[in-house]
Design a protein around this nucleic acid. Sequence first.
RNA 1: GGGCAGUUGGCGGAGUGGUCAAUCGCAACAGACUGUAAAUCUGUCGGGCAACGCCCUACGGAGGUUCGAAUCCUUCACUGCCCA
Length: 347
Amino acid sequence: MGVTDGCVLSMPLLTEKQVGLKPVVVLVGPTAVGKSRVAVEIAKRFDTEVLAADSRQVYRGMDIGTDKPPVEDRQGIPHRLLDLVEPNQPFNAGLYCRHAGEAIGRLYGEHRLPLIVGGTGLYVRTLLRGLCTAPPADPNVRARLRQEARDEGIDRLYARLAQADPSSASKLHHRDTSKVIRALEVYELTGRTMASFQDEHGFGGRPYRALLIGLLRDRDALYRRIEERIDRQLASGFVEETQRLLDLGYERDCSAMKGLGYRQVAAYLSGEYDRDEMVRRFKRDTRRFAKRQLTWFRREPDIRWLTIDEGESIARTAERAMELIDRFLASLEDGAVAAGSPSDDAP
RNA sequence: GGGCAGUUGGCGGAGUGGUCAAUCGCAACAGACUGUAAAUCUGUCGGGCAACGCCCUACGGAGGUUCGAAUCCUUCACUGCCCA
């Protein structure tokens, strides 16, 4: 029969009515928590694709270091929003949004449920709630501001921001170079303050009806997985991958090469420190990154958290996630408002 | 068996009578985030609290000197190096 444990399997494809409500399922969580494997299981069930929300996996040729799911792990499920640009090409949240929007639109045309999976909090937020209309980075303005920061010190730039855009200045720390520069850049480009763009936007957009599922693990277990994964990456040629990218001319200071791992390996290859130190920093910085992701997602509203126990199978976690998805889709079909019910676990 | 050096908060390591809950480094924890976000930045870090101040326990154990000790003395334990 089509019934398993009293739980009716929903149709893999979306109904016309459901498509109209623009549903998306978003699987988030810290790095190495196990999102990708679970995502493939879910995608199989719903006969859909995996749309990555990952600011590093968009770079071509950066595979081992970004832990891009290898083809054999994808099990025939198409993975999108990977390998979008070369490592020296600009990429950002706005571009991500556009690409993701297209992919999602295409899936709706096929009555498929978009499944977004990733750990880049800003990309997820941008996709789900939009981005203010401030213009994207301008390479010339930015380069000039950077130079000024180097020459005169960031304090001078901050003072200028305090003059031009006191509201943004008050929200930023004077040493937060990248954000101070961004705010000044917007002001120079438009004559309007960054704060005014942000106030008018306020992350108010709601283009989709989203179910957010957060994957969690015990902190020690997560850290252990991070270290194991890094050992695996190094064993499967990560140093060589980095060397290849450097040989292709991707400088250490280009944004893509500042990603975790690449940064440490490049420093190691240039003789800044030995291999042990490289591994130590790679692991440490990745642990810290996972913590930052947790901080970000904890603050994100309406995430349904699933804590994965040690020894829990991928299938089991996927099953738990799919129960949430089934309920979510049913609520759309009923026309019920998917109220944010309390999380299964607190982060 | 003898001599010398050492034992400090999660780790390393300063401090040698009061201004020390103890410089600093590491690790950790917490937070911020609107087109670089795996980036960038901030805070905390013995414990407790009605918390910009108060209380408690603390610098190997015990005892002592002193108004007052992580700092001086005695002793015990342990560690390292050297001589047997």
